[in-house]
Every structure is written in C-alpha cells, then in structure tokens.
Design a protein around this nucleic acid. Structure first.
Lengths: 251, 251
DNA sequence: GCTTGTGAACGAGTTCACAGCG
DNA sequence: CGCTGTGAACTCGTTCACAAGC
C-alpha cells in the first residue's frame, strides 16, 4: 500500500485488549477493551445484523438462534456465530441470543451509543438526496451541517438546514463535533475539499466522488463508486452470456 | 450461504477457458475465453484502473508502468500486476503498459464494449439523483427506463425520460434489452419489486434499499448500504478514540 | 538496464465439525 | 438434547522477491 493512503480494504487493529493496570481508576470503557480485535469483514456485517435485529425487535420475539438471524441476514450460521464471538459471549447455549442484549452489544461495538454528527459536503443532486435520506437518522446518524462551494447554494435552506460555505468548515466541525464527513462533490474538486475537511479535524470520510483520495494515516476513508458497482455487474453479465454460448457450442 | 441468495461476496467462476473443438467455426469470442478466471477482488479493482487510465488517456502519455498506475489507483504495484495478469499478458517488460491497449482490454473484460442498458426502479430523492448522475453515462451505462409505483410520478418526465408504471417492466426489459436494474425504493417494497424485476428477465441488480434481498442463483446482486458505510466508519472512530484514551492512561 | 509476470510464502476470511455448556 | 463458541482445515487474497525478457 502506498504511503498516506487508506483504501477501502484497510488493515484493522481494533480496540486493543488492555493488560492489567496498577491504579484503581477506570477511565476507559472496559466493555470496549474486552472485545477482541474485530476483523474488518465482520464489522461490515455487524451493520446488517443490527438492521435485521431492529426489524425483529418490533415483534414479540425476544430470542433468536444463530440459524434464524443468519438466514435473515443472508449469511451462514457459522459465520454469524464467529462474527458475534468477537464481541464477547452473549449467546445462551441451547437457546440462542437475547435480541435486545445483542442489539445493544452490536450498537456499542459500532460506536452508535454515542452521538454521531455528520457533515455533508456538496448539495447537488446526490447530496440533496443524501440530506433527505431517512435511513441515516434511523440508524444513528444526524446530518449536522450542509456545505457547498457554489455561491448560488450557500445560504439556502435544504431540509431545515442552511447551506454553509467551505470557509465555515472549521467552526462547524468544532461546534457540531463532526467526526465524519460525506463527500458528494465532483471528482475534480474532491482531493482539495478532502484536504480541507481533514485539516478541519474530520477523521472519517465517506467519498462518493469517483476518484482515489489520499488521506493521512489517522483518517479512515471509505468510498462508494456507483459506476464501478454497475461495471462489476456488467462483468458478471458477460460471464453469464459467455457461459450460454459455451454450452450452446459444446453440445 | 443460504439457498437462492447471492450476497455481495459471491463466489466467482469466470469465463470458462474452452478446450479445443473440432470444427473450424468460432462463434465464441476467444478473447473472453483466453482470460483466466478473474477473482472477484480483482474485478472490483479493474473498474478503478479503468477510471484512472481514462484520465491518463486525455494527455500525451501512451505508456504507464505498473508503479505509476498502482500509485494513481491507490494499490501496490505487485497487486496491480497480478490483477492485470488475469486478463492476459498485455504489458511490455522494461517499458510498461500501453494505455490504450490496456484500457481496451479492461473494458472488454468488464463487458463494457457491448451496449448496457439500465432500468432505474424508484424515482424518489435518491432515484432522481441517480437518474441525473453523469458518471453512469461516461462509464458505459445508459439509463434506458425509469419506473415507479407512485401514481403521482407515473407519466411525468425526469431528465428526458418518462416515468413508467411497474406494469410496463416486462415490455421495457425486452424492448430496451435491460439486463441490469437499479433499485432505489423503500426497504418495505424491495423484495416484491425485486421478484417482479427478476421475473421480467433482469439478471443483475444493484440494490440501494437497506434490506437483504433473495434472488435466484442466476441473478447477480450487489448492494449499497449507505447507513452501513457510516456505521463502519463509526466503528473505527470508536477504536481511534479508545486508542487515545488508552495511551493517555498508559503513560 | 528496467519492468513485467508469477511461483511461493504469508495472512485474512470462511467453513467445518464438534466440544462445551445451558 | 440443542445451540453456542471455537480450534482446525481450507479457500481466497495479498505481498514478496526474483526469473524472464524486452
């Protein structure tokens, strides 16, 4: 991996298990420390498990087996059990998992028990759609600020939030305690805006611009490349079409 | 993996290398068959390489080394070379890769040399943003049809396209030769719509609804879960905060 | 020389299958 | 007896390091 770049598949080193300390104070949340290092692949699935659990929670079901939860999440049960085992031992043998306990533990692991404010940079088509996306609020995130560079947009209100100038980013990050920024801006502007956002103190970025961003090592970066998703599907379409031709020729 | 479900991490079995055939005809594109099975992880990166190459192509550069291309794509050069080696041997030792040849080979591998029409299902906030996303067109895809279930939207024009009813899906898929559908609809409706789209003949789906979809084995499914992306970043935020606390306590 | 292409070593992630326990 | 939790086997993906070849 090149220096100063975190790709989507960055190596992890999760909440380090602490050794014994001599003093009696306990300023660190031990429930975090107790968890073993959680593999990156597991973290990604925890979000799905949490969503499935919250659907279950509405009903009268108080307990789920790994088999039930795995089926609902679209994975196999061994994988689900291994995933959950990284959080600790919250299942009951012969019974299953308590829905509310498990929900709580996953939410804690994902850091959703604390306040998470998000700054949305870029309020074009995609940005406005993201600003109105209800799924963020229901799953633990508050869009705390909208920012754009277009003078025509600055000062306008979108979904109850005023659009600020990029010059306000430092103040916004501090005042709203923003740790996560979502970039919904053109590719050409993305690296510059990214640098600015990082210097304002943001330490996690979700990038929708189709460009490779370089960030310092302490900043986590994830990307959503919409066209790439279609291209991957296109690859498999080609493969399926070739398989049909191959079969036709073989017989 | 549960039956009849393809997750995002589906096992691959790419364009099967063909054995010798006795007849002289050659109805199958051998350039597809020539490529070895391409790992899923490689396919995902090919889209990035293609994008980076197309930026390079504008200039006067006709050749790139694996080191240059890898840096621009945010991967290391060994990985890039191994990725490209799955397509065949298109590099020149001591020199590098010819930009236009490589662009062509990657595009062919991803199936972008043929016409790819996409149906967009759901023209709410996100759907409209996707309908207007220029990146689809510039990277090989044409949004050929818009569909929604809301009677208020059906018949309206969005970006030059009329919004059709779900009842038109069968006709649209055939007439426009749609193989890929993008679902930008509420979670509650997603499985039903998905089933309908599959029965109309769509064989690849990109799902934006935060729900696990079940599809037949011949259908490829990818998902974009926006809230999950933020939750993954939130996990790492928690880890970083814990690391700071841990260090503070240790010293 | 310099850069590709790749076997081999390594590491991450998944699945198996069963011990451990309620 | 049923279901969790997990070592062990296995598969997939990455990195190393160097032979091959322009």
């Amino acid at each position: 991996m090149p220096p100063a770049h975190n790709g989507g598949d960055r190596p992890i080193a999760a909440a380090a298990p602490r050794g014994r300390r001599g003093d009696g104070r306990d300023p660190v949340d031990y429930r975090l420390a107790r968890a073993r290092a959680v593999p990156e692949a597991t973290v990604a699935r925890l979000a799905t498990y949490l969503r499935v659990l919250s659907n279950l929670d509405d009903g009268s079901i108080t307990t789920v087996s790994s088999e039930e939860l795995a089926t609902a999440a679209g994975v196999n049960s061994a994988k689900l059990r291994k995933d959950l085992s990284f959080l600790g031992s919250y299942g009951i043998r012969g019974v299953g998992y308590d829905v509310s306990t498990l929900t709580e533990e996953i939410a804690r692991t994902l850091g959703l028990t604390v306040h998470r404010s998000v700054a949305l940079i870029g309020v074009g088509n995609l940005g406005q759609a993201l600003a109105g996306y209800a799924g963020f609020a229901t799953r633990g995130f508050r869009i705390a600020a909208l920012i754009d560079v277009d003078p025509a947009r600055i000062g306008t209100m979108i979904r109850g939030l005023e659009v600020h100038s990029m010059a306000d980013i430092d103040r916004v990050v501090v005042e709203q305690e923003v740790a996560i920024a979502v970039l919904a801006i053109p590719a050409a502007a993305a690296q510059e805006v990214c640098d600015r956002v990082v210097s304002a103190g943001v330490t996690s970025i979700l990038n929708f611009a189709p460009v490779v961003l370089n960030v310092p090592a302490h900043v986590d970066l994830r990307k959503v490349d919409l066209a790439a998703e279609l291209q991957i599907l296109s690859f498999h379409e080609t493969r399926k079409a070739a398989a049909v031709l191959t079969r036709a020729v073989d017989q």
